[in-house]
Every structure is written in structure tokens, then in C-alpha cells.
Amino acid sequence: MPPFLFWFFALMTLGFGAGVIINRSPIGSALSLVLSFIGLSTLFLSLNAYFISVIQVLVYAGAVMVLFLFIIMLLDLRAEERRKINVVAFAGGAAVALALFVQVYRIIGALGAARQAFPPLRSGNTDDVRRVGLLLFANYNLPFQIVGVLVLVATIGVIVLSKRELR
């Protein structure tokens, strides 16, 4: 990927990521998140991680966020737009975020690997779907199965909490 494309998509990811928080309208926030995900998926693409890139668009941008948008539109949230910004909370949050940013920045600066040039990627077919599948179903089988139980519990929970009360 040419450097200017990297910069373009990196800035797109970050810019729309900030847009998620800055936007006062919930729909604007959700759409910003979709665009941020698309920028992120392009960055994965530039690292030859085709599978993760496709999943990022299909699952996160496609399924999850569109569902989110549906729910926001159905609920018709207006309270968030009217809410005033609490200056103290805003300043506190900004201070914490800034502290974390400075810390990460300095640690990356001290990291040996960050000063080396990025090694060239292998060209050609990386066969990543097969390798992710093998790793998931063979070596990481136990955590994978537990995620199955987790999804079961989440399903039960959603049904119980959204069910109308029987009288």
C-alpha cells in the first residue's frame, strides 16, 4: 500500500473514531463508527490480513452496526441531543485520556521493535482463512467451546430480560 493511502485510511479511522464521541446525535455516532471500521478494515488489508479485513466489514460494519442503527431509529432517542455537556466530567475524561495517550506514546517510543523498519510482507496467497480455522478448531478448541456457552447464556439473558412479565 502506498504511504499516502496508509495515511488517508489511518486518519479516516481516527477521525471518525473521534466523531463517534463528539457527535451528539446517536445516528451520527453510529454512522461514524461504521466509517471508522471501514478505514480499519483497509489497514488490515494492507497487512495481507484479508480474512480479518473482510470480517471487519461483514460482521462489525455490516451486521452489528446496522442492527445498532435499527435499534436507535426504533427507540427514537432524543434525550442525548438535548443533554448539555458537563464541563467538569468532560475535563476529567480528557485528562485521563491524555494521560493514557502520553503513556502509550512514550512506551512505544521506548520500544525497540518500534524503531526498526517494518519487515516486507510475503507476497502471494497467504491462505489465512484455512490457517485461522485450523488454529481455532484445533489448538484453541477449548476457549472456542466456552464461547459457545457464553453465547448460550447471553441468549437466555436477552430473552429473560426482554420478555414481558407474565401475570
Binding site: L150, V153, A154
Partner: peptide, 15 residues
Amino acid sequence: MIFVSLELVTMSFYV
């Protein structure tokens, strides 16, 4: 494994 089982516990506590 720690993360996955911790999430299973947390998820059921949410409910």
C-alpha cells in the same frame, strides 16, 4: 482461557 471464562461469568452476572 482466562478471558473467555471470565467473560462467561461476567455475562451471566449482567443478567
